[in-house]
């Protein structure tokens, strides 16, 4: 199976701190990949780079879809102008556009959609409206069409509503559709955030600690949902998670980060028995380690 995402030699510096140091991994299309590692290992930084919130100091991130069209997820952040840009007006225009409008929004339009560790819903809007907002790419954004309420606009809105109901049903949130998102119970907010991400039509769904704060029952439901998203909806999933039970159960590939470096990657059961991983998690006394 071909890779959907390739991350190559990703390095990120914050001032003097080297947060990521040469991180590289592949995500195959239709797989579930888990990023694990101790706190401060750089997992969320990798996520922020993937989704366009941070611009890495160096390295390459590339998203290739089934037709072979590929997007450079770093270029769209709008890097500094280069000399070559002056020769080609097209490249210049592209860079200018990315500089002005670039960043996470373009990454999302390319198909990388994420959720957040500390849930970020539109709290004063209803759950249903949260899902409508996410369908930016599919609704009719024409101002005049909306004001005049044209046929095309009404059709697009009806379709958007239908899709929103579908995902509310999928995550069993239908009865909360018209409640404010900020008023929902914690576990339901987590689900709503994933539903919202699905409404944005992701190719790569990035979940940042989706099971944090959920009880064992909810976690079990979550793992079923993730698996069925992959199976039934053709979504590739990349997640950060501390719940090893969940990670071992659902992932095809586990990437272990420590101190900003990939120390192991591969099938879950292989990674689990890797001594380097055990050392990173449990720590090994000085004399034995040397």
């Amino acid at each position: 199976m071909a890779s959907l995402l390739t991350v190559h030699d990703l390095t990120m510096r914050f001032g003097g701190v080297l947060a990521l140091n040469g991180v590289g991994f592949d995500v195959r299309r239709g797989s579930v990949t888990a990023l694990i590692g101790p706190n401060g290992a750089g997992k969320t930084t990798v996520f922020n780079c993937l989704t366009g919130f941070y611009r890495p100091s160096s390295g390459a991130i590339r998203l290739t879809d089934a037709d072979g069209v590929s997007v450079d997820l770093i270029e769209i952040l709008g890097g500094p102008f280069r000399r070559q840009d002056l020769r080609s007006p097209r490249a210049f225009g592209r860079r200018l556009y990315c500089k002005m409008f670039g960043g996470a929004a373009l990454a999302a339009r390319a198909g990388v959609v994420r959720t957040f560790q500390n849930i970020r819903l539109f709290k004063e809007m209803t759950a249903f409206e949260n899902l409508l907002v996410a369908q930016r790419a599919r609704v009719n954004n024409n101002l005049l069409a909306g004001l005049l309420s044209t046929r095309a606009y009404r059709d697009a809105e009806a379709e958007a509503r239908e899709r929103a109901w579908y995902w509310l049903d999928f995550f069993r949130l239908a009865e909360d559709g018209n409640r404010l998102a900020g008023e929902l119970a914690y576990g339901r907010q987590r689900r709503l955030e994933i539903a919202r991400a699905m409404c944005a039509g992701p190719r790569l769904l990035c979940l940042d600690e989706p099971a944090a704060g959920l009880n064992p029952n909810e976690t079990r439901e979550l793992s079923e949902w993730i698996l069925s998203l992959r199976r039934g909806h053709g979504v590739t999933v990349c997640l950060i998670e501390h719940d090893m039970g969940l990670v071992m159960e659902i992932s095809d590939q586990v990437v272990v980060l420590d101190h900003g470096q990939v120390i192991a990657s591969g099938r879950p059961e292989k990674v689990r028995d890797n001594p380097v991983v055990l050392e990173a998690y449990l720590g090994v006394p000085e004399e034995e380690g040397r």
Binding site: A104, A108, V113, R120, K123, E129, A134, R136, A200
Partner: peptide, 14 residues
């Protein structure tokens, strides 16, 4: 309204 509520979430949705 979504932007008023959370700009970062908006960007993450494109």
């Amino acid at each position: 309204e979504a932007l008023r509520e959370d700009e970062i979430a908006c960007r993450s949705l494109g």
